[in-house]
Amino acid sequence: MTRDEQAVRLIVSAVLADILAKADRADRDQVRTTWVVGDRLNGVVADHPAGAIQVKKGAVRATVTDQAAFAEWVKTHRADELETVRTTRVRPAYVSAVLTAAKKTGTAVTADGEEIPGITVVAGEPTVAVTLADDAADLVSAAWQSGELWELIGGLLPALEPADKDGAE
Rank of each mutant, 00 (worst) to 15 (best):
H77Q: 06
G124S: 12
H77S: 09
D18Y: 03
P162T: 04
D27C: 12
K22I: 01
R9I: 02
D138C: 06
A133R: 02
T127H: 10
A101S: 11
D27W: 09
D29K: 11
G154H: 00
S13C: 04
S146L: 11
G155M: 04
D80Y: 00
A23P: 00
A142P: 00
A52H: 02
S96R: 10
R78A: 12
E5D: 14
S13M: 11
L82P: 04
T127V: 09
K104L: 12
L10A: 10
A123V: 06
G51D: 02
A136F: 01
K56M: 07
A97C: 00
S96P: 03
T120I: 12
T87R: 10
E114D: 12
A68D: 11
R89G: 13
Q6I: 07
D18W: 09
A97Q: 06
Q30G: 05
N42T: 04
W35S: 08
A26T: 08
V140Q: 01
A52S: 00
V45A: 10
A142H: 05
A137M: 04
D4W: 04
R32S: 00
L157I: 13
D112R: 07
G106K: 02
A68F: 10
S146D: 15
W73T: 11
G113H: 02
A71H: 04
A111C: 04
K103V: 15
R89E: 06
W144K: 09
A50P: 04
I11F: 02
H77T: 05
W150A: 15
A163C: 01
L99G: 11
A79G: 12
A59T: 06
